[in-house]
Design a protein around this nucleic acid. Structure first.
Lengths: 319, 319
DNA sequence: TTGTACGCGTTATCAC
DNA sequence: GTGATAACGCGTACAA
């Protein structure tokens, strides 16, 4: 609990000198430097981060805003963010929103109240218009598409990615394709629908299933899918977990894949490999890293930037 | 950027009065209260959290220390912690250690440097002896077994849980049982081995596989398992993800489950349901909640406590 | 009911 | 090289 003043008194120097020693500044005689070090050791000095933070105005913290902690999709982003943050002596504060606007607002209020230096948003309900109003209080980097000037974005180009996924399906001979989306009105879902209608000749509304986020949703999809009279020959998912739920349920019903219907996932979650899931590999950990690095650069004066990432086909046995 | 003094000046009152208004204290005339509110609105006042923190000595933050963000096992704990924390106006800081002692030390240093009020540790390499040396700087709650006095613990009783899992296997007629562990020297692995030798008559060293953490490890296990001349009739895993990796690989090789070998998982990860995995359901989200609540109680003066949780058999088709 | 003055622990400024 | 002293923005005795 000894503070900088106690050290100064004990070493018989000024607090300024102690501060200089702590921060490795020049212009301190070796003799006093040694005395200060000895005093710090003797009294068990520990620098109080809160005081530093108030004094410098920098918190060395970034808030990461995401809807669900327990959805494995997000953990890869967070992993990348966490690694980049730790390497740069930053801490990350996690805020789980469950897509509630009020939670997103509270999380961004951390920026206003100088509790964090920047915000990284993985998915959001909030409009970009509202988000921009927080920009004055610190850099904001998002993993979603459509960010306006002022807000950095490192994201998967969902339109291009879905197009290339559809091409993979078509190269495998599938023309009648259905797609499985998460939230119907999210920008990524809209981009995916657009790609679907642009690239699939037989595209139809009934072959778009929306509201599927978890593996349980995937299980539930089996009934919805099988109950249709006219069914597509292939399903392109927007999440590996949903795809795996569906795949497992089809296996349980002894319906062979891809004979009954081909399955193409999206993400590249390692667990998919165990079940031979064909999928579009998304570089989510890299995106996480870059989100932090972009935010860091902005804190140091750089301009906001937008980067679109692409996905890669990862072969499996479900096509 | 207006601070409490600016408000005071603008409303023509003292800073104390402004502080009282902010914190809803009594003894402020309605008239001045209104003036202060008006001034705050006019100047766009936002309370600086860093200053509050330095002044009160409380950060309203808790650090959560865990080895891997991208291992889905931990996300359920974090989910529970996050929910409980947000309900109590606490923020959580995440520190990913990859089981590196130095990272664990750095994370606990946050406590020393008053950057957080308490620490929650989900899994650790550090000895409890060393951990205790940090206790002086704030409450510590762990999700592991064997915590000494002074350190709170909400954990799965791995010995009892493994015993009950083994009983489930035996009730299904399996006597020759093997077990799959993660890190060989972790307390939970030791408890599981003990349970194994205590309860399984045919227990043998060759039927203990250690070093399996991920689904990829589970895939790899298939070869190790099949190459043994004498094989157990059932495998009891310590993680659903490893079990699923193994299950998927066995399916790929067209080896029927449970005929080739029965599989019992451990965790109760939702994705297991899709593939009919029989497992021991562990209340990890609840444990997360209680970890936070215990830490909070300690911050408010309560004594450290230890609670052991039990797991429940969740039926599937792999036994 | 209100206000003055100080403490929280640090860094930054400026004079010596 | 060194050291007073003023910020940073808030809460809170204590006095009035």
């Amino acid at each position: 609990m000894a503070n900088i003043r106690d050290i100064a008194k004990y070493a018989d120097v000024s607090v300024t000198t102690v501060s200089r020693v702590i921060n490795d500044h020049p212009y301190v005689s070796k003799e006093k430097r040694d005395r200060v070090h000895a005093a710090m050791k003797e009294l068990g000095y520990l620098r109080n981060q809160q005081a530093l933070t108030l004094s410098t105005g920098k918190t060395q913290r970034v808030v990461v805003i995401l809807p669900y902690m327990d959805h494995p999709y997000y953990s890869f982003f967070v992993d990348g963010i966490a690694k980049a943050a730790l390497e740069n002596q930053y801490r990350i504060v996690i805020w789980q929103t469950e897509y509630k606007l009020s939670e997103e607002q509270q999380a961004l209020d951390l920026l206003k109240h100088r509790e964090v230096d920047a915000a990284i948003i993985l998915s959001h309900e909030m409009s970009f218009k509202e988000m921009v109003s927080y920009r004055a209080y610190g850099p904001i980097a998002v993993a979603t598409v459509g960010a306006p000037k002022g807000i950095s974005s490192i994201h998967v180009d969902h339109y291009a990615s879905f197009v290339s996924g559809i091409h993979v399906l078509q190269q495998h001979g599938y023309e009648e394709i259905g797609i499985i989306l998460s939230r119907s009105h999210s920008p990524s879902s809209l981009a995916r629908q657009q790609a679907y209608f642009d690239e699939v000749a037989s595209a139809r509304e009934q072959w778009i299933w929306t509201g599927y986020l978890t593996s349980e949703d995937g299980i539930r999809l089996a009934d919805e899918f099988l109950s249709q009279k006219e069914r597509p020959r292939a399903l392109f998912f927007s999440s590996d977990y949903v795809a795996l739920g569906f795949l497992g349920e089809m296996q349980r019903r002894q319906l062979p894949i891809p004979e009954t219907v081909a399955i193409l996932g999206f993400d590249g979650n390692p667990i998919g490999k165990a079940f031979g899931l064909s999928t579009m590999l998304s570089p989510n950990e890299t995106i996480g890293r870059q989100l932090f690095e972009t935010a860091l650069a902005e804190m140091q004066g750089a301009s906001p930037q937008t980067t679109a990432m692409t996905v890669m086909y990862q072969t499996g046995t479900t096509l």
